[in-house]
Simulated scan of single mutants.
Amino acid sequence: MPSGTPGVSGVSARDRPGAGERLARVVDAGWRPAVLLIACFAAWWIVAAAELVEPYLVPSPGATLDVLTGKTSYLWQHTWVTTYETLLGFAIAVAVGVLAAVVMVYSSTVEKTLYPILLFAQVVPKIAVAPLFVVWLGFGITPKILIAVLIAFFPVVISMVTGLKAVDPEMLQLSATMGAKPWQTFVKIRFPASLPHLFSGLKVAVTLAVTGAVVGEFVGANEGLGYVILQANGNLDTPMLFAGLLVMSLIGVVLFVLVEIAEKLLLPWHASRRDVGATTAF
């Protein structure tokens, strides 16, 4: 049957977008934030060039670029530490968060017991409890990972619980009528239906995990981007401080994009992937 002609069911087949069309979609989705970033950097350059603010407060883009290019190995060493803490904390938060969400959905007793505790843990400022983790666990990598887990855990749990509860009740009744076992219903219906909600939470959680790792480094560390930023702040080395902030932001953006790519690969059927929207990078 020729592509694009009506089929037997009366529904027209859609051609797969070619490389040119996909590129056009990416450009259409990305030119606005690109223009905004260029405008921000232009404003930054104008403020620095006109000396509207003292250089020790706001360095020039050139000075920051010199730090990024001149101290690449130093920044890379600390960037890797923060990235490792972020990824490990995020992975643990996803594993524990998904498991907790499944248990909460299938047990109202657990949900009523655990949900208030999760809410209380979320509203407690992590920067306030971070020193306790350092006292209890030392200055190693463990406190940073734990803080990343605590910050990233809540969005994962909430999004997964929402997704598991958002399944059409008629689908659950149909599976029960057909004799499906609970684990079969979970694997075939509940879990796939919850993935769009889960990925929404993952995109939030992965950026928060970066924040958690850096917060842990602020409290007590001798490596990582948080350590770099603290050292630069103490020495009034604002070019290094800005460089650390830019690299930290880049880590969050890259991880967000990776999660979105995974979402696109795993959920090509979902409505959110059919059109390029404001919150979609691909």
Rank of each mutant, 00 (worst) to 15 (best):
R274Q: 12
G62D: 11
R14N: 11
S194H: 03
G226W: 08
F154V: 00
E263K: 13
T279F: 12
V35P: 02
K71V: 03
Y74E: 15
R190D: 12
G201S: 13
A243H: 01
L65R: 05
G277T: 13
V27E: 12
L198F: 03
I46R: 02
P61S: 14
L265I: 15
R273E: 14
G4L: 05
T109D: 14
I147H: 02
W269A: 14
F191K: 09
A48W: 04
T185V: 13
F153V: 02
H78A: 08
H197R: 10
V156R: 00
V81S: 08
I147F: 01
L57Y: 10
G10V: 05
V134I: 14
I151W: 05
A101R: 01
L255T: 00
L225T: 01
M160T: 14
P192M: 08
T185L: 06
T109N: 14
S73G: 13
V11T: 08
A49R: 15
I127F: 01
E223K: 10
I145E: 07
F133I: 06
F199Q: 09
T211I: 12
P155T: 02
R274V: 06
K144E: 07
P17H: 14
P192G: 07
A130D: 01
V149T: 04
P116T: 11
V214S: 02
A148M: 02
G234P: 01
P6D: 11
G10Y: 02
L198R: 03
A48I: 04
L119W: 05
P17N: 12
V58M: 07
Q231Y: 11
Q184L: 04
I229C: 05
G18I: 11
S159L: 06
V67H: 00
L172A: 06
V259Y: 06
A166M: 02
L137K: 06
L164F: 04
V123G: 10
T142R: 11
V276M: 12
A232W: 00
L146E: 07
A232S: 09
I92W: 05
W183Y: 13
L230A: 12
L119A: 13
P143C: 13
P192Q: 09
N235I: 08
L88H: 12
G224E: 10
V96G: 10
L23F: 15
T162K: 09
W45V: 05
V135L: 15
V257F: 10
A209S: 07
G277I: 07
I158Y: 01
F41W: 13
T72W: 04
P268N: 13
L57S: 07
V124T: 11
K188A: 14
V124A: 05
K165L: 06
L87R: 01
I117G: 10
